[in-house]
Design a protein around this nucleic acid. Structure first.
Length: 592
DNA sequence: TAGAATCGCCAC
DNA sequence: AAACGTGGCGATTCTA
């Protein structure tokens, strides 16, 4: 069946006088559909052409080329306020154009794209474009062909029909999806997500500032060192190669090719299964051949130059002079966000790189992260008295853990015992086994098993919770976070390998997912608290927020960030104290 | 020859 | 199948 909502009357608004009747028609409504058509994808370089507003009776199409910003003022409270609820599909996109071109921070939204992601509960195969979602939930066929048409000129009938249809379908779609969310107990999570659209749109629009000169200088030193190391390696690895060419110069090997590197190593008597870092590290312990060290250094340098090099500078926006990454709000089944173009979530955590991300003149960065949030979630979930008490004592979790494990007073814990405890604290939330722990701590498998046993004796509640979570993943095939976010595991519980994986994600999923619930709640609370201040979230990395602010209010912003992040966590964690570490600085560096 | 698959490594 | 979860991304190599 073909959906023909353009049979609904649509009204083209081309003058300020027509805004009044529109506002009148929207008065008292609970939900409206919102869509925009733009001349491109970049809010800074493309224009907002149409703003469509759908009610059950009609679609209003505002031609933004014919109206001024001021003409739209009567719509401001409707778009920026909590009601009516604005339904959109990937409405962050529209929100960015509305913010930049109309100066209105769209809020009070519900998003059928995010809703679709939540209902799919981690499916990697489901697609979430409006046409696919309409097909899935309304069994209707929606024509998206006009989407990429030229929206900058005189509009034809088919374009207006398309614009109207896209907006009109949102109301019946939301009506259906809302029911599904309710049935699946996902309404709380959905609201949590919808509340994050405003902070995310603002964050992407703001972008981050990079010190280009500093970045280039860093790359130059890397390049120089890279060339030195490259020459050393060619000399060392070329030794066994048959001399080629007229002057007997050896053919250089491509050091970026794992195959060629492995063959070259073999020629000088080093046989390896592959050339991954961990294997090279292992080989280094057996035979500290200088080639291995060179190779390890070369890897880091060439990776840095390729992944965090000139390519990142090319992404600096010509209009703003800043980096504007794309965040996918629900990027993983656990609810974590992902980030690309560039991914600001994987900039190396070294001073040289991070110091290139600086606040502009007269401004400061406030950098805040949760301290061991996943361990705290585990403590709260498991209600383990010893782990909760470890957090209640404050201080050093790993030392506390070691003291519990080895039944020692805190001041008698050795460095090695602390390392063991740390390995366990980090590893067990991922469902690590004895083998993994053994190689991580460079001990034997028997010792590792003993350590795990001691750990679970000290934290018996944790052991029970993890066991039950793994068991439930196998038996039920799904898990939920504190907000109710659902992850349906698509793994076969019969297959031993997949069952082991199932147990691991069953343990880790709810913990990682609750951390993202908390983080998103904090983003929303912070966004609200910063309203009216010259301060803006500019980066978000799983448990860390970076806020750029005017220098003179940095201390105030620091307090606000700390307070709201703790408040976000408080909504989901009751028994465990939450700690947030905050720094004010000129660059993206932690600690004062 | 373009796109998929693989290797390898960065983040939390 | 590297041990241990979630991703992005670049270079090489494979394949339809």
């Amino acid at each position: 069946m073909n959906w023909q909502p353009y049979k609904l009357p649509y009204k083209l608004i081309e003058s300020a006088a027509e805004i009044g009747p529109l506002v009148e028609s929207l008065r008292g409504r609970e939900v409206i559909g919102i869509d925009t058509e733009t001349t491109g994808l970049d809010p800074y370089r493309s224009r907002l052409r149409l703003l469509q507003i759908a009610t059950p009776e009609a679609v209003w199409i505002i031609d933004c080329f014919r109206l001024t910003r001021a003409d739209l003022d009567p719509l401001r409270p409707l778009l920026a306020g909590p009601t009516p609820v604005k339904i959109g599909h990937n409405i962050k996109f529209d929100a960015k154009f509305i913010a930049h071109h109309l100066g209105i921070r769209l809020d009070g939204v519900a998003d059928t794209y995010l809703a679709s992601l939540l209902l799919s509960a981690g499916s990697e195969t489901d697609r979430h474009g409006l046409d696919r979602v309409v097909a899935r939930y309304l069994s209707l066929n929606l024509d998206k062909q006009a989407q990429r048409s030229d929206w900058s000129g005189e509009l034809d009938q088919s374009q207006l029909d398309y614009a109207a249809a896209d907006a009109a379908v949102l109301l019946p779609l939301w009506e259906e999806m809302r029911k599904r969310l309710e049935e699946a107990d996902l309404l709380v999570t959905a609201d949590l997500e919808f509340d994050c659209v405003r902070p995310l749109a603002a964050m992407e629009l703001a972008g981050v500032h990079v010190d280009v000169g500093r970045w280039r200088a860093l790359l130059a030193t890397f390049q120089q060192r890279h060339d030195v190391v490259e020459a050393e390696l060619q000399a060392a690895l070329g030794a066994g190669v048959r001399q080629q060419g007229l002057f007997g110069t050896p053919e250089p090997i491509n050091l970026d090719s794992p195959t060629q590197v492995r063959e070259a190593l073999s020629r000088i008597g080093i046989e390896l299964e592959d050339t991954r870092e961990w294997r090279l590290q292992k080989q280094k312990q057996v035979d500290d051949h200088p080639v291995i060290s060179w190779l390890l250094e070369h890897r880091t340098l060439s990776h840095n130059l390729a992944a965090y090099g000139e390519n990142i500078l090319e992404m600096i926006h010509p209009v703003t002079g800043r980096l504007h990454p794309d965040f996918r709000q629900i990027g993983t089944p656990t609810g974590r966000m992902t980030c690309n173009s560039p991914s600001l979530q994987q900039i190396p955590h070294t001073t040289d790189y991070r110091s290139c991300f600086r606040a502009p003149e007269g401004r400061r960065l406030v950098i805040a992260d949760y301290s061991q949030i996943e361990m705290r979630i585990l403590a709260d979930f498991s209600q383990d008295e010893a782990l909760i008490s470890a957090f209640d004592q404050g201080a050093d979790l790993h030392r506390q853990t070691a003291a519990e494990m080895f039944d020692l007073p805190l001041n008698q814990v050795t460095q090695r015992q602390r390392e063991y405890a740390k390995g366990l604290n980090y590893g067990l939330v991922y469902g690590m086994g004895a083998e993994g722990l053994a190689s991580r701590l460079e001990t034997g498998i028997v010792e590792a098993k003993g350590l795990i046993e001691r750990y679970f004796q000290a934290y018996a509640g944790v052991a029970r919770w993890l066991e039950a979570a793994g068991e439930e993943a196998v038996n039920v095939g799904r898990a939920r976070t504190a907000s109710g976010r659902l992850w349906i595991f698509r793994l076969d519980p019969i297959d031993p390998v997949q069952q082991a994986a199932l147990r691991r994600v069953g343990k880790n999923g709810p913990i990682q997912g609750t951390a993202s619930d908390i983080f998103k709640r904090a983003m929303r609370l912070l966004d609200e608290a910063l309203d009216g201040l010259d301060a803006q979230i500019v980066n978000a990395i799983h448990d860390e927020l970076v806020v750029e602010t005017e220098e003179s209010i940095a201390a105030e912003v620091e307090r606000i960030v700390s307070r709201t992040m703790i408040a976000g966590a408080r909504e989901f964690l009751t028994r465990v104290p939450v700690q947030v570490d905050v720094t004010i600085g000129e660059a993206w560096l932690k600690g004062r």
